[in-house]
């Protein structure tokens, strides 16, 4: 069964998920989403907290994808089967070993080919 997963260290704290989620019931944008991004220490941390099984009230942009996942810019939110979510995690870990770009964005959000790039310095091919 598909459910929502969060990759916390990809979250940039923009709160698009929370803002859109809050609007789905009545068209009012606020901070009252079923997903919330906590910022307990000002700007140093962004912690997304879910209170939702992923059956979206109103998938605005794609019928199969919850609104929060559609609007997430970094790829920090996933709506997947458990095995597929695990694969995404491994892909991210591998991408991060290869390029520092993936500190800030998920490889599945990056539009250009990145796999098969030449090995990094000190890495044996």
């Amino acid at each position: 069964m598909k459910r929502l997963y969060v990759i916390e260290d990809l979250c940039n704290g923009c709160r698009l998920c929370q803002t859109f989620c809050s609007s789905l019931a009545e068209g009012v944008f606020s901070a009252e989403g079923r997903i919330r991004v906590l910022k307990p220490s000002g700007e140093a941390q962004d912690i997304p907290i879910l209170d939702c099984d992923g059956r979206c009230l109103r998938p605005l942009f794609d019928a199969q994808t919850p609104t929060c996942v559609s609007v997430c810019p970094t790829g920090a939110l996933l709506y997947e089967e458990a095995a597929a979510a695990a694969e995404r995690r491994l892909l991210l870990a591998e991408a991060r070993r290869r390029h520092s770009l993936f500190k800030v964005v998920a490889p599945w959000k990056w539009p250009f080919a990145w796999q098969g790039m030449p090995p990094q310095k000190g890495e044996t091919p």
């Binding site: 940039n12 923009c14 698009l16 962004d46 964005v105």
Partner: peptide, 13 residues
């Protein structure tokens, strides 16, 4: 160390 964004920005970092 971390990507950041202003409120509701469509860009990752």
């Amino acid at each position: 160390t971390k990507a950041k964004a202003c409120f509701s920005c469509p860009w990752p970092a």
